[in-house]
Computed example of a mutant assay.
Amino acid sequence: MLTFNANDPSGAGGLSADITAMSSASCHVLAVATGCYVRDTRTIHQHVALDDELIDDQARCVLEDITPLAIKVGFVGNADNLATVAGLLSDYAHIPVVCYLPDLTWLDEVERENYLDALAELVLPQTSVLVGNHHTLSRWLLPDWSDDRGPNAREIAAAAAEHGVPFTLATGFNTPDQHLESHLASPETLLASARFERFEATFSGAGDTLSAVLCALLASETDLQAACAEALGYLDQCLAAGFQPGMGHAVPNRLFWALDEDAPPDNEADPDDSTPPAQQLEGFPTPSRTH
């Protein structure tokens, strides 16, 4: 698995999400850093993009050694970096590509427009599946939409298809009974749908998590419809087990499957455990609490 994304020091999204989600699907992750967020769990304060030549060097060095089975394109920073990524994708045109579009309203307007123009022109024609929240995708792909009714999944997919994308996974459709729906669509048909209860918490990193595990499942040659259903189910469990590590938004627990629900509390010994207590090394600092 090859992924292009920015480092997120909060652990909510970016490469942190890609690595943990893809690893959960038993994939070895080739993580190419495209930049670095200056952010916490509440908001993005800044993003610094890496030089496009450095991104190219990272990717080509590892690609000369390892051939990936699928590629994810997350947020890569600027138009120059998108051009570099597009050049790499063209050299591996037989490999499926999942492109995720995050919310970019925090970005300077001119930079955002330049980025989206380059994404549409250079990367979407090489994209197998475009993933994003339906509001984000609609604002970008259908800027002149004037109907009071928002565009549905097929209409968003049709707009994406004009740029060469065969399939679109649009998330976050509201329903009257407080559920959220996600739809995999082509311009011609709705291929798969999933419906989950809405969580009260606001999450950071959900979209990166979904697109990463979808890409990992495609790498294992899972059928696209089945991969979408499994990826959406995985995300739902990540959110159900999510937690709030700081003072901002909640974060998906992408390693929920590793939790031992039968483990005794920290202050309660297991009577069947014959392991002798660990000895504290003199002078070695130990944490006063666990996370």
Rank of each mutant, 00 (worst) to 15 (best):
residue 191 L to S: 00
residue 260 D to H: 15
residue 16 S to I: 01
residue 250 A to H: 15
residue 276 P to W: 11
residue 37 Y to I: 04
residue 215 C to Y: 02
residue 145 W to F: 00
residue 121 E to N: 15
residue 123 V to Y: 03
residue 56 D to I: 10
residue 169 L to S: 06
residue 159 A to W: 03
residue 250 A to R: 14
residue 103 D to W: 05
residue 21 A to R: 01
residue 5 N to K: 03
residue 219 A to D: 01
residue 11 G to S: 09
residue 106 W to A: 15
residue 231 A to C: 06
residue 160 A to G: 09
residue 241 A to F: 11
residue 81 N to L: 12
residue 240 A to M: 10
residue 152 N to F: 13
residue 142 L to E: 05
residue 22 M to S: 08
residue 38 V to E: 11
residue 169 L to A: 03
residue 202 T to Y: 11
residue 216 A to H: 00
residue 187 P to K: 08
residue 152 N to G: 12
residue 88 L to C: 09
residue 4 F to L: 05
residue 267 N to G: 10
residue 183 H to T: 08
residue 231 A to S: 06
residue 166 P to A: 04
residue 87 G to E: 06
residue 260 D to I: 15
residue 255 L to W: 04
residue 18 D to R: 02
residue 271 P to Y: 00
residue 240 A to N: 06
residue 232 L to E: 07
residue 130 L to R: 07
residue 154 R to V: 01
residue 93 A to C: 10
residue 67 T to K: 10
residue 283 G to F: 06
residue 39 R to F: 05
residue 196 F to E: 09
residue 100 Y to E: 08
residue 177 D to I: 11
residue 84 T to M: 09
residue 220 S to Y: 14
residue 153 A to W: 00
residue 87 G to M: 12
residue 114 N to M: 11
residue 79 A to F: 01
residue 273 D to H: 12
residue 137 L to S: 01
residue 195 R to G: 02
residue 221 E to K: 11
residue 53 E to N: 12
residue 270 D to I: 07
residue 211 S to K: 10
residue 213 V to I: 05
residue 269 A to M: 11
residue 255 L to G: 01
residue 200 E to N: 13
residue 211 S to W: 02
residue 239 L to T: 10
residue 60 R to I: 09
residue 12 A to I: 15
